[in-house]
Structures are given as C-alpha cells and as structure tokens.
Amino acid sequence: MTIYSLYILNKAGGLIYQTDPCPGLNKLSANEYLVLAGTLHGVHAIASRISPTAPTPNTGFFGTGKAVAGNCNTSGLKSLETDAFAMYVFQTVTGLKFVLVTAPGTRAQADAAELVLCRIYECYADYVMKNPYYSLDMPIRCDMFDEKVVEVTQVVV
C-alpha cells in the first residue's frame, strides 16, 4: 500500500499536520491544503446527514462504560475512491481526524489503512499529547512525532 499523504485535522477542521511520504499527488499551495482540510471536515459532517438508513444511537459507551479507542467514524465520511488515489478517514472520540491518502486498491485495503491510522494515533497520543511544549489544536511541530510517523509509514511501504 503506497502512502501518498497523511493529514491530521483538529476538531474544528483546521489542518494541523501534513506529510507526504511518497510523491503521487498534485502539489498545491499551503492555502489550498487548508481549504482541502476544511472541505473534508465539512463533507464528513454532511455525509452523516444524508444517510438513507435511520441513525443508530451510540450505545457503545453506555454498554461497557469504556470509551471507544478506535475509529469512531460510524456515520461520517469514511473512505473515498477515485481513479488516482484512495482516501481513508479515521476519527477519534475527541473529534480529531486522521486522513490517509494512498494509491487506489481493493476494498480490503481499507482495513490495512485503518491499522496504519490507529498506529499513527498511538504515536500522536504519545509524542504530541505528552509534549508540554505543544498547545492543543495548534499545528504540530514535534520532532519526535515526525520521526515516529516516518517509521510507521516506512514499514507499510
């Protein structure tokens, strides 16, 4: 699975982190990436409103008393397929979105992408959240997090 890009959006839809391990996508200006992030955030929300089936109440938490640590994306935009790339969205309980853009592949690739995003979430929880110099919802400028992301994306590629 070739990973073209990884974006991290904060809970307001602002782009706080971007990395491009492999070339394969068009290069846009910084402003255009911010607009892209905002659009994805919006479409993610809209997608849950046009569902043809009735929404199911979120009983996961009430059933077990434990918060869900994985992908909380049950009704928002989860994946996107085009001719040139596939995009996967992983949302956490705190509203943070991890967006992975890869080469197009089969439906089974979605599981592998989810695993990669899970591992990147772990790196985030360790190297960004536990960094006292990082303020919440601001662009991520942590060296150790960059190194760990490179490690994770290298293993997959």
Partner: peptide, 8 residues
C-alpha cells in the same frame, strides 16, 4: 471521483 463511503 468513483465512490465515497460512510459506515452506513
């Protein structure tokens, strides 16, 4: 764009 999916 070919398709997009949500959980539902």
């Amino acid at each position: 764009l070919k398709s997009f999916a949500t959980g539902k």
